[in-house]
């Protein structure tokens, strides 16, 4: 069984048609580079240059003379690593990092758990209205995060929330979703609502590609549906689960739209609630693009380390069987 699954997952097609690359290269050595050019240009100008420029800015700062009024009183100078020092020793930044880590611990398991559950349900034999259900579960993903946060914001505000109104009619007092202890869950809820559909589709697609002979074999061996799900489906789609977890971790560290939209509605979301909100505040509200750049670099490195660290950790386990 394992060998079959591994074929699906990672082994390359066995025979590649051989275009005798040596002779081609000799005839037209520049062709591959010409084909690469558009992608390289796009990459350089829309990714590499901005990243390098951000790194450059993070080492600069503005110095003001006296009152700072009038031209010539501000000069851009080298700041060394002082912007990084300020970022890393900033209590607001550290607590925003801890906050999103806690947020991730809520969002990722719940979102992936629900996505997996829905994918398995849709994939099971007996389900009806499959196409319709799939669409309905996927639909929230098509709603932009700003819009969904606005919608949920209306539902969270006691003065306009239909839930509060209905509860009042029957004499029940609901907890306020944007109270200090709950606001993290209120934001997590929006992310889960929007993210389940996408992850469900990824997992469902992986499930559909499992050959049905596997199930037949399992049934002949006496497996029921639950056992098939647990023993076959989940192990087979493990790589997809890992991929969606990595995506989930990246989006968690970069959560921005939901808390930014909810912030004006409550006292309990600060302007530095998440690291990205703090970067935005420093760059565009406080006009300090330099320390915002330093914080961006720190956040990018942290995202990189976390996602690759996670990949290494789980990939060894997930694919260990291959090497057996």
């Amino acid at each position: 069984m394992t060998s079959l699954t591994n074929d699906r997952v990672s082994s390359p097609p066995e025979k590649l048609p051989d275009p005798s690359p040596g002779s081609r290269r000799a005839r037209n050595p520049r062709a591959p580079y010409v084909f690469m050019l558009p992608a390289v240009v796009l990459f350089v100008f829309s990714i590499a240059v901005p990243i390098m420029y951000t790194a450059f800015l993070s080492l600069r700062t503005v110095k003001v003379q006296g009152l700072g009024l009038g031209p010539g009183s501000r000069t851009e100078v080298w700041a060394g690593l002082s912007n990084y020092g300020r970022t890393l020793s900033d209590g607001d930044f550290l607590s925003s990092v801890l906050r999103v880590l806690g947020y991730g611990l809520v969002v990722i398991p719940v979102m992936l758990g629900l996505a997996l559950l829905f994918a398995l349900l849709l994939d099971s034999v007996r389900v009806r209205a499959r196409r319709f259900s799939r669409l309905v579960i996927f639909m929230p993903y098509a709603v932009p995060a700003v819009i969904s946060s606005l919608l949920w914001g209306f539902l969270y505000l006691p003065a306009v929330s239909p839930f509060t109104y209905a509860a009042d009619q029957v004499g029940v007092t609901l907890p306020q979703p944007m109270a200090p202890g709950l606001v993290l869950f209120a934001i997590a809820n929006i992310a889960v609502w929007g993210g389940v559909g996408f992850n469900m589709i990824v997992l469902y697609t992986a499930l559909r590609s499992i050959p049905s002979e596997l199930y037949e074999a399992a049934r002949i061996d006496g497996c029921n549906e639950l056992q098939i799900a647990w023993r076959i489906k989940i192990p087979v789609i493990l790589p997809s689960l890992i991929m969606t977890s990595v995506f989930g971790m990246i989006t968690t560290l970069q959560v921005f739209a939901e808390p930014t939209v909810l912030r004006p509605l409550t006292n309990n979301i600060s302007t530095s609630w998440s690291p990205l909100m703090m970067i935005y505040r420093d760059a565009f509200t406080r006009n300090d693009i330099y320390s915002a750049s330093a914080t961006s670099v720190v956040l990018a490195v942290a995202t990189f380390v976390l996602s690759f660290g996670f990949l290494r950790l789980v990939q060894n386990r997930a694919f260990a069987q291959e090497n057996r």
Binding site: P144, A145, F247, T251, Q254, F256, A257, L276, Y280
Partner: peptide
């Protein structure tokens, strides 16, 4: 979610 977040990042 991912798409919009990335969008805002790019815009940023």
């Amino acid at each position: 979610m991912r798409r919009t977040l990335r969008g805002s990042l790019v815009a940023l």
